[in-house]
């Protein structure tokens, strides 16, 4: 479904601020696969999601999605295939528009939008039925501005909108990081339900080791723009939060191993 081949991206090349954000990342994601991406700060997790979403073009490498080479597609064209939820619950929705109006936009994602009325009784009823599944009591507030909702409610709606048309790929970028624990829990449960129900191919970035082991069928750990570990099959099944933390610890130790440590080891290790 998603195929990344040797994807590279450097920001501010040939300047003192040069950041090699992606250094030859290759991933094959089968249809219906749910991949969790974890990694240290600045490891390239979100950059990878942005590269797939088309926020910028990659310097080299190819990105194929659902049989299309989308490497040079602009972001808005990719949006026909990709649903996306951001970390900030205030991104991804239009705050001054009502819930129903936001949903109407999501329901026609990637399709031509004419000047005819977007909302009629049948559409409103469909919205009501779908929103009821959130169990947040929003089905009776279709005409409320989405900006009046709490962060958790808004993120749940954003998730619903992003998956409304069953996208070929769902991108979740730490989409619960800015929520209180109770709301984060609700949104994670909803995420799991929607992805399982519609067998959505998903890339999710998270800093939560618990989420990483509870969700998804594959875990990729990134560091310095590269894939360090790719846990699949039995390795994925047995992964526990403490195992992932231990891998982070190893990464940290590796980073701190400088010439002085090497000299110490040569002197003292036998």
């Amino acid at each position: 479904m998603l195929e990344l081949r040797d994807v590279r991206r450097t920001f501010h090349p040939s300047t003192p601020n040069e950041v090699r954000a992606l250094q030859g990342v290759s991933i094959d994601l089968q249809p219906g696969s749910f991949l969790i991406i974890i990694g240290t700060n600045g490891s390239g997790k979100s950059t990878l999601l942005n590269a797939v979403a088309g926020t910028f073009f990659v310097d080299s490498g190819t990105i194929r999605l659902a049989g299309h080479d989308i490497t040079r597609w602009p972001e808005h064209r990719r949006a026909a295939l990709i649903g996306r939820v951001f970390q900030n619950p205030f991104s991804g929705t239009a705050p001054n528009m009502t819930i129903a109006e936001n949903l109407a936009l999501a329901a026609r994602r990637g399709q031509p939008r004419g000047f005819g009325p977007a909302l009629d009784r049948r559409v409103r009823q469909e919205f009501r039925d779908r929103i009821r599944t959130l169990n947040m009591g929003l089905e009776d507030r279709l005409d409320n501005a989405i900006g009046s909702l709490s962060g958790g409610q808004r993120q749940a709606l954003t998730l619903l909108m992003a998956t409304w048309r069953k996208p070929d790929l769902l991108l979740l970028d730490e989409h619960t990081a800015a929520l209180d624990p109770k709301s984060a829990d609700q949104v994670i449960r909803l995420t799991d339900e929607l992805i399982r129900r519609d067998r959505l191919t998903t890339l999710m970035v998270t800093h939560s080791m618990q989420q990483a082991v509870n969700l998804g069928d594959r875990i990729v750990m990134m560091h310095r723009g590269q894939i360090l570990h790719d846990l699949q099959g039995p390795d994925r099944s047995r992964a526990r939060p403490e195992d992932l933390l231990s891998r982070f610890e190893q990464v940290r130790r590796r980073e701190q191993m400088d010439a002085n440590v090497a000299a110490l080891l040569q002197r003292s290790y036998v």
């Binding site: 940290r252 130790r253 590796r254 191993m257 010439a259 290790y269």
Partner: peptide, 18 residues
């Protein structure tokens, strides 16, 4: 090659630096 060669030692050994 020597185990302690730098920077290759980073992929050969781990040390508690904290």
């Amino acid at each position: 090659s020597s185990l302690f060669e730098f920077p290759a030692v980073r992929d050969r050994m781990s040390f508690t630096t904290e």
